[in-house]
């Protein structure tokens, strides 16, 4: 499934009054610079259908009031991140007890993005320094992992954080495409971000961040909803809202299937 395409017209942004920009919570601006970035996607809703096997989202955007010379020398960098809904997350560690591997230690983290798909013009390390990236929560290694509750042995925290990032990446939920953002003209760019097949449903957000000579210029956020549709949505709602009826239907379906099976094959 490929989702595209909405073209953003760069000049539209310039005509907006400045006050409106400041009041907009989806925009963060470094006032030192005059450049602006805006993005658009064809849809604000991704439907998970029964044959859903992941999706590529194409985000289009433009840099406005860009310096021609700097554009030509590739001084601008763009990072596009797709962040999933926040879920509180627990990491557990197995240890050997009496010869058997079992969960012994756990650390609970404050809600973190369930998924995180990153796309950028260059590898993040080339775009800005670590402090700068961390300040704006950019990059898999800068997703904030704040422990909650009783942490106990704090010396293990780093290991647990690394494990969480590692597992999220091996599950395909956290991923990056270091050259996924490409300029299609001088100031227009296109970014592909990948939605994995196991994408969590709920409110996601697309964040686009503009850097100029390794300095933060502006961030723009637009929402994206991932929803179940049709039968999947109906089954999910039914199972949660009328769980007793759902359970009974599941049992009746099983009995019916078993009965029909024995009926059809009875002669043999």
């Amino acid at each position: 499934m490929r989702t595209a395409i909405f073209m953003f017209v760069g000049s539209l942004f310039a005509s907006l009054p400045a006050a409106a920009q400041l009041a907009d919570p989806t925009v963060t601006i470094n006032e030192k610079f005059s450049e602006r970035i805006d993005i658009g996607i064809s849809t604000n809703e991704i439907a998970i259908t029964s044959d859903f096997s992941g999706a590529d989202i194409t985000v289009f955007g433009a840099i406005d009031r860009a310096d021609e010379l700097l554009l030509a020398t590739f001084a601008y960098d763009i990072v596009v991140a797709l962040e999933g809904p926040r879920q509180s997350t627990t990491v557990r560690r197995k240890e050997r007890v009496a010869g058997i591997w079992m969960n012994r230690h756990s650390i609970r983290f404050e809600p973190i993005p369930a998924s995180y798909s990153l796309s950028s013009t260059r590898p993040l390390a080339d775009i800005a320094n670590l402090m700068e990236l961390a300040a704006h929560d950019i990059g898999i290694n800068n997703v904030r992992l704040v422990p909650t509750g009783v942490v106990g042995d704090g010396s293990r925290l780093t290991e647990f954080r690394e494990a969480l990032r590692r597992i999220k990446q091996s599950d395909g939920l956290y991923q990056r495409a270091p050259t996924g953002v490409q300029f299609i003209s001088k100031s227009l760019f296109r970014a592909s971000v990948r939605l994995p097949a196991n994408i969590p449903v709920g409110p996601h957000k697309v964040r686009a961040v503009l850097y100029k000579n390794s300095q933060f210029v502006m961030e723009k956020v637009i929402p994206l909803r991932v929803v179940k549709t049709g039968l999947e949505q109906f089954i999910y709602n039914f199972a949660h809202a009328n769980s007793l009826a759902y359970g009974l239907v599941a049992v009746l379906l099983a009995m019916l299937t078993g009965w029909l099976g024995s009926l059809i094959f009875r002669k043999n």
Partner: peptide, 10 residues
């Protein structure tokens, strides 16, 4: 196990 850590969310 290959991975001694496991993640619980959702």
């Amino acid at each position: 196990p290959d991975e001694v850590y496991s993640v619980v969310s959702g």
